[in-house]
Write a protein that binds this DNA or RNA. Structure first.
Lengths: 131, 131
DNA sequence: ATCTCAGTTTAGAATTATTCTAAAGTATTG
DNA sequence: CAATACTTTAGAATAATTCTAAACTGAGAT
């Protein structure tokens, strides 16, 4: 069976044509950063298109299942990272380009304790770049 | 002379009524996180209102002059932090609440080198919280 | 003080990423 | 195959932000 279908079934998501198409692209083993728009445009070229609403739905579902990592850097666009291992990012404000930082390249040796009644869900380090 | 006016002049910004009003509120010595909307609403109560466009303009100008720190966490809102010293943030996704982390509570003991031709402009650590 | 003008404010329109809606389509279960 | 719950979709709706162009104002020159 197609790998994407396995992933989808394992996460209680019906392997619809659209999800498989998106999954095949996202989970091909090559780390990617996509936006809803960039993914939508990419898929327009495919034999069968996927509507923009479905791209949004699918990205959000994949995030919920932790198959993708959502990264918000600027208001105008949300990035989805196929690399779900713990790592951080460079962001070039000029080119609006997101780059992975290898996890071994950042060491946070002291972390604050979470406020009462809360726990830490995710730690996101973004290093903004300039020329 | 009013403190805000001094700050404005020192940064080549004309001390207009609107900027002084906004500056008096933001730079009163108490650290704040505001959004354009929250600031706009706050100022509606004042004797003289300020238009939403001016709130946006002013926040951006203050950021450009590094009188404020812009923090983007989710697409739906941008936060402006009056604390411009180097520090990081907790963010509670549920309450959409931003909290300062004292700078001594985070130690990043190893940082990656910037990609060729780029330098590090800003390091932003956001710790997302859940219940 | 008054004049002049670049800088500033403003209301409302425009933009744009994202979400919503509700109708049509489809995978799954029995 | 039928029934049903889940999905997809086009297009409308939403909402934060930016833009526009006209009116206003602070600051220096006279």
């Amino acid at each position: 069976m197609n790998m994407t279908k396995k992933i989808l079934r394992a996460n209680d998501l019906r392997p619809t044509k659209q999800r498989v198409l998106i999954g095949d692209y996202l989970f091909d083993g090559i780390d990617k950063h996509v936006t809803a728009e960039s993914l939508f445009k990419k898929l327009l070229n495919e034999k069968r298109g996927v509507s923009l609403a479905t791209v949004y739905n699918t990205l959000h579902e994949f995030c919920k299942k932790e198959l993708l990592n959502k990264i918000t850097i600027d208001t105008d666009k949300v990035y989805f990272d196929t690399n779900i291992s713990s790592h951080h990012h460079f962001f070039s404000d000029k080119e609006k380009l997101l780059l992975d930082i290898r996890s071994q390249d950042v060491i946070i040796s002291s972390m604050p304790v979470a406020p009462k009644g809360k726990k830490i869900k995710k730690v996101e380090l973004i290093i903004h770049l300039e020329d």
